[in-house]
Amino acid sequence: MMRQTILQYINAFVIGGLICAAGQVLIDRTKLTAARILVLFVSLGVVLTGLGIYQGIAEVGGAGATIPLTGFGYSLAKGAFKDVDKYGLLGAFTGGIRATAAGVAAAVFFSYLAAVAFKPKAKS
């Protein structure tokens, strides 16, 4: 049990680290802006899940595959599949947002609170 948990953490570290490292190589080598990298990674996550590839990565990597933005794409696609199976074509429209609602709602709400309470600060 203990060994299994340690292995799980190592996998999360390695898979998550590799996905981020790939992003860094893209930033340095292609001069793509951070915003484009994020779009690319989410789209890649959706496509790889659609092709049935990301499920395997998530199986091994755990949080290492779900925490990076490719994992956001994975949740979107997985949610779409699940709702399509349940509700038919309508599910393609409801599934993605349903599966990622918690994260998006949390980002909106916490960011709003932060903006009300805090000021930006420069570094000197």
Binding site: D28, K31, A34, P120, A122
Partner: peptide, 18 residues
């Protein structure tokens, strides 16, 4: 700060400069 805001990104965004 006003130049970053207008020409680049919000100040608190964790981006790297070349």
């Amino acid at each position: 700060c006003s130049a970053e805001k207008q020409f680049r990104f919000p100040l608190e965004l964790g981006s790297q400069r070349p």
